[in-house]
Each structure stands twice: as C-alpha cells, then as structure tokens.
Design a protein around this nucleic acid. Structure first.
Lengths: 221, 221, 221, 221
DNA sequence: AATGAATGAGCCTTCATTCAT
DNA sequence: GATGAATGAAGGCTCATTCAT
C-alpha cells in the first residue's frame, strides 16, 4: 500500500520538523525522531539517506508549506492599496513563523527558521534562492509603492530589513519575550494584534524615512 | 604562579567566547576550546568545573563587558532630549551586538546572544534579571518620554520589542543579510549608518503608534 | 519469463564473483553486488537465500569453471612424459588463477581463491574434497613418476606444496609483486613465461630433493 | 605510573596483532580488541586515534619485531658461503611468518602479512619501502652469489619470487595445508624441517635455472 | 519472479568527565 | 596548579535480512 509507505515517510518528515525546530540540528537525534515517528532508526536512513538530508527535506517542507498555506496576499482584496498589501505581507509572515500545531502542522518550525538565520545550513542556500529572495523582492515593491518614489537602496533595503526583523524577532525570541514582557503566545488573537502593531509601526517608519533628506541615498555615497 | 593561572583561565574564557559564539553550545567542543587556548582538556574542567559552567561564565563575561564598554548613554550629553537618548540606546546596542574583534575582543559574540534568544540556556536566567530587564526598563522610559503620555502596555511593550527586534535582527541574521541584501559587515561606518536608520525608522514608528487611537490599550481589553 | 530469471541469476553470480574476488567476503556488500547486477537487493536473497549461500555458489562456480576451462592436461599430448605433464599442470594452474576477464569471465577470482587459503570459509570444505584433493593427488603421481621411486611423504608432500606454493604466490601476491619486482600483469605472454620458469625451477628442486639422502623420510621420523 | 600507561597501550597493540591476524581488518572489531586488552573502547581511540591507525601501528610492530627478532643472518657464521646465507634467509623467514606466541608474541601475525599480500592496506606502502624492498635486495645478492654470474632480471627476479613464494605459502595457506597434507603446525621442529626442505628445493631450482639457456634473459627480450 | 519498505543488530567514533599523579 | 590516561554514554550510520505485495 503506497499510503502506508507514504505515511511512514510523512510521519518522519512531520516529527522531524517538530524536533529539529525544538532542539536544533545537532541536539536533535535520529533516535528520538525515529521513536516519535514510530519507525526504526534505519528507516530514516532508508527514506532520507542521512540526518543531514533529512534536515534538508524538512527545511524544504517547512518553507513550501509555509508559503502555500500563508501566501503574502493572504485575505487580500485584488485591488488593495500598498498599505493593505503591506498589512497582508506582515500578517502572513507572523502566521508562517508562529502558527501553532493545531492549525496544521508547522508548530515550532519558526524556531527552525530562526536557527537558520543565525547559522545557515548548507541546505539553506537553495531556500534562499527559491523562497526568501522572491519574498524580499515582493516586499521591496510594496515599500516602493508606499513611498511613491524610489529613495535609493540605502533607504530601501534597510526598510525591508527593519520590517522583516520585527516579524522574525517576535518569532525567534518568543521564549525570552514571554519572560520579559507581554503575553505573546502564538494564539490567533495575539498574532493578529502584534501583526497589526508591526504594520502600523512600519508605516510610521517608512513615512519618516521617506521624509528624511539627510540620510544618504545611493547617489550620495 | 598566579599570573600564569590567571592567564590560562583568561585565555580559556576568551577563546570560549569566540568558539561558543561561532558554533553554539552543543557544536562547540571543549577539545577545540582547549586546543585554541593552548591548555590541557582537563584544565577547563579544573578551572570551570564543567562545560556548562564555562558557558555560564562566558555569557556573564559577554554581557558584563558589552554593557560596560558600550553603555546605553554612550556619547550622550547629560541634558540630551529623549530622541537623542533613543539614538544613543540604539547605537550602543548595535555596537554591543556587532563590534568586531579589533575593537576589543567580543567579536562573534553577538551570535552567542542571538542563540540565547532562540533557545535560552539555564545560565541565561541570571542575565535576564541583571542586564536585560533593566535595559528594557530604560528603553521603556525613553519611549514614554518621547510619547509624553503613557499609551498603556499594549502600545508600549510592542514598541520596545520592535526597536530591540530591529537591532537584534541586524546582528543575528547577519550571515543571511549579507547574502540577500546590503553590505552589513560590522565596520564602524556600517554600524553607525544602520543605527541611524533604525533610530529614524523607530521615531517614525513611535509617532505613528502614538497617534493611532483604534489600537487597543490595556484598558480596552 | 525463465530467460529473464536465468539471466538475472546469472548476472548476479557473475558480478558477485568479480566483487567477492576484489573485496573479499566481508567487505563486499550485497548492495554493491545488486547494483552492479542491476537487480533489487531482495532479488539476491530470493535467488540465493543469503549472502553466505551466494558466496558458496560463486566459489563452486569459480572452481567448476576454472577446472573445466583449464584442465591439468591442457595442451598435453596423450603420451606425454611426466616432465611435460608437470609443465601442463603448472601452466593450467597459472591460467586458472590469473586468467583475465577477456578470456572468459573469471578475472580477479584468483584473489578469491587466495583469500580462501588464508581463511577458508565453510563453503570451502566441499571444494577441498571435490577439486583440491584430487588435484593434489594428480600432482603427487606426477612427482612420483618424475622421481621414479617413492621418497616417502616427508619428501613428497613438501614438493607438492612448494610447487603449488609458487603458483599460488604469483597469483595471490600479484598486487605486491607488481610493486616490488617485475611486470606480472596477467597477460597470456607473462603467464606463459612465468609458468615456464616455475616448471624449470621445480624440476631442479625435485631433482635436488631426490638426491638428498640426509632429509628424513617418513620411516626416519 | 608510566609503566601502567605503557602497559595499556602495549596490551592493545599486542592483542590487536593477534585479532587482526586472526580475523582480518574488517572482521576484527575494536570492541573485541578492547575487551581482550581489558581497556575501554574509547581507550583505543585515545591511544591510536582510530581503527585504521591502530592497524597501521600493528603492522609496523609486526614487521619491526619480526625483523629484529629473526634477522636474515640468524645463526649465521660471518664467513658463511652464499648457500648457507640462503639457508639462514629462508629459516628466518619461516620463523618470522610462523613463530607462535610462546616464543615472544607474534603468533598468527603471519596471516596478517598474508592478508596484506592479497589486498594491501594503505599502511602497507611504508612497510614495502622500509622492510620488504631491502629484504628483497638481500635475497637478490645471495642468489647472484650462488649463481656466480648475473643471468639478467628475467631469470633473477623470478628466483626471488619462487623462494619467497614458498615461504609465504607455507605460512599463509597453513589452515588448508593442515587439512590436505602434512602436519605443518608451527612447532620449532616443523619449521626447521620445512625450511630445510625449501632451502634444498630452491638450491636445486636455482641451479636448474642457471644452466637453462633457452629462457629469455633481459637482453633477449 | 521480483520488489520496495522496514527492521534489528552491530560498528566506529566522539564527547564530556573523572582519576591518579 | 595542572595534566595524561582512561572511561561510559550516546550518536550516526551500515548491513544483511525479512515481509507484504
């Protein structure tokens, strides 16, 4: 039965995402993953060759599922203005990074992405090209549309980073945030509220950057 | 000879910061640290009892040095207005997280902090209380002073997080940022420019949040 | 389709001979054999039950083919004298142990036999009885005929061993011989020349042993 | 106590020689070696880095001890004639390859050498240069002295190989020889008797080769 | 007849730690 | 104060084998 085979492979992929996200690549052991997936250790080797390849498959799965489940135009009207497109972009990013298990299986995987940002694995290279760079370009066009004019890369790229930085920080530092500040448990309500905040904060930031003239633009450098 | 002992202990602490920052706690091995510090493996256990305690000592050292070398009022006039205090705060944070080796020995340790945010070690608990919470409170008062009125925690705390988030993100994701966007090598010029950007962006964000009235304040919830 | 089955089984037997000869029993893996034979791993167990049985089948095949292709009276006139019979015996042995692939498919299998001499496998027991002992007896009668009289086992058996030893050594140690001495690539020309040498050397040896009287015979012990 | 340390390392080296000789490199496990040497598995790694390096050390030890304990001029008068030097050479080789444990610790290591002849390990390269080639050259000069004139490499080198081949074969094929022919247990009496036989057989062979004129010499090729 | 999936055993290695000196 | 030797635990991986199909 292909469904049984697929099931075992899928089970491995599933729990591996969970455990890699929770413990990190090195701390996670294939023994634990195998036990959680209710398969033999050698089955992991059979389906994914080795631990590193399994990790690569998990990474691909996380990004693939994340972007298909929460596209950047999530809940967005076709004729939305750039402000609303930024809002959707930020909300989708929050959901992608922090949606919890009950919603469909990518819980804790936000931390997996956070780990990749800190030290990228070899498998992350492909992810950069296939998912992250196009995503960055989308945000670039949104910001350009909001500003109306091109302020040059020295103003544009940092806007991208500041917006993404906020989204990522809420996800990656969530264990600490919970301890030092507010309730940021990844419930739907919290995510929506924080996304709304980041959106407004970033709109203010973009406006401020646009009106600043003493910041160097590309030409000024 | 106390000087020799102190020297060995200091060498261990020094290279351990480097290597823990570079590889992370689990990936770093005391063998590599011992070899880099030119001491016997057992000497590490002798001076620091075990790997975890060594890590704790490193963490304490990193924060202690970071805050003493780059205080939050760095280069700040005593009578500076809150905007300028925010500027100094952000600049100090950039330097603390990203200052490179030539400047005095805490290179790569920004990544060590980033790792702690993703999964905090037991030793991080003390750091939170001694360094991070007071630091957060300082930023809180700065923002309050900028706003002039207390908008309630639902607006205030996220401002703190969005500002810190930007600073941290630039440091923690630097390997990836370098690949997908701008030159963010931690030179003095780059750090100053990016800190300036984050400062302005955040001023805009704070202003925007202040004027927003539909955002829920604490009482509205 | 019987032809396909037979073909698969034969392919396995064929490449297994090659690979067992090259790597030895333990170092050879059924995975590599299966891939080289272009069959599924399980097909090997299907056709040959397990790795050890496959090895037994290969061993039988090697000896069976070797002795049928290169019989000890190869190229020998029916009325040949014992010296010529020894010559044919030695030449056949060289060919059996070293004939290369182009000649009909038992290349590298000389090393397989060499390995069996060093540590015999369970399957070798049957080979001893069916092939090697009769072959030894044939050489015994040849030597007896050359000597004319029976010098007793203490002189006779070592002659057998010294002759066989030379033949086997040229085959088994060929990787080293090539490195430390002469060109002994198993070309037809080289095999013929070396066999000729061993024949003459052994004739001299036999003659010397025959005339020696101080060597203990069986009775003297 | 250095003697205790040395003792552990020596014990490992000792039993490893035994077990590698008995089972071969792949079949031998460091677990078994560790247990037999009464040390922890990790101790092997500590002293010899890994299995392959341990094997290299064993190989070096076997040859080093073999040649120092049984030099090629063993029991030889300083003014001995070439025939007697050949006799000593052959006797030493028999002892080296087959001397059993009671005599001083290189039992079963003849098989280790035999395995190297069949498939040389990377570590064997150094052994060739340091031990085997000089040994071969010594035998060459002995044969030259016996013949009186240089018959050319096409006659000389095979003489070397035929003599060495006999010695090696008695050692390497001893499990089989025992089954198909005579009592060749490596007792001192047996070794002496067989060495004596090989010596005489080889003297006869050399003489026969010398008088043969139709064999190609170097120039004839 | 033949295969893909899955297993259990076993192997080498690495690591942090301890102990005697 | 500092070290070389030795340990026990655990980890990733490979292999021959089996089972359901």
């Amino acid at each position: 039965m292909p469904s049984y085979n697929a099931s075992a492979k899928e089970r491995i992929l599933d729990v591996a995402g969970e455990i890699f996200g929770e413990k990190g690549f090195k701390n996670a052991t294939i023994r634990v993953i195998a036990r959680a997936a209710r398969v033999n250790i050698a089955a992991i080797n059979y389906h994914f060759r080795d631990k590193e390849s399994l990790y690569g498959a998990v990474l691909e799965e996380v990004f693939s599922q994340g972007f298909s489940r929460f596209p950047a135009n999530m809940d967005l009207a076709p004729d939305a203005d750039p402000q609303q497109r930024l809002r959707a972009f930020i909300r989708a990013m929050f959901y992608r990074l922090q949606s919890c298990e009950g919603w469909g299986g990518i819980a804790g995987r936000g931390r997996l992405i956070a780990r990749e940002l800190v030290d990228p694995s070899p498998a992350f290279e492909a992810i950069l090209d296939r998912y992250i760079k196009p995503h960055r370009d989308l945000l670039l066009t949104i910001i350009l549309d909001i500003m109306g004019t091109d302020p040059g890369p020295r103003k544009l790229m940092p806007c991208v980073l500041s917006i993404i930085g906020q989204c990522v920080y809420y996800a990656m530092a969530s264990p600490v945030i919970r301890r030092i500040s507010i309730d940021n448990a990844p419930t739907e309500e919290n995510l929506d509220r924080l996304a709304e905040f980041v959106w407004l904060f970033s709109l203010g930031g973009i406006a401020k950057i646009k009106e600043e003239t003493h910041l160097p633009s590309k030409e000024a450098v």
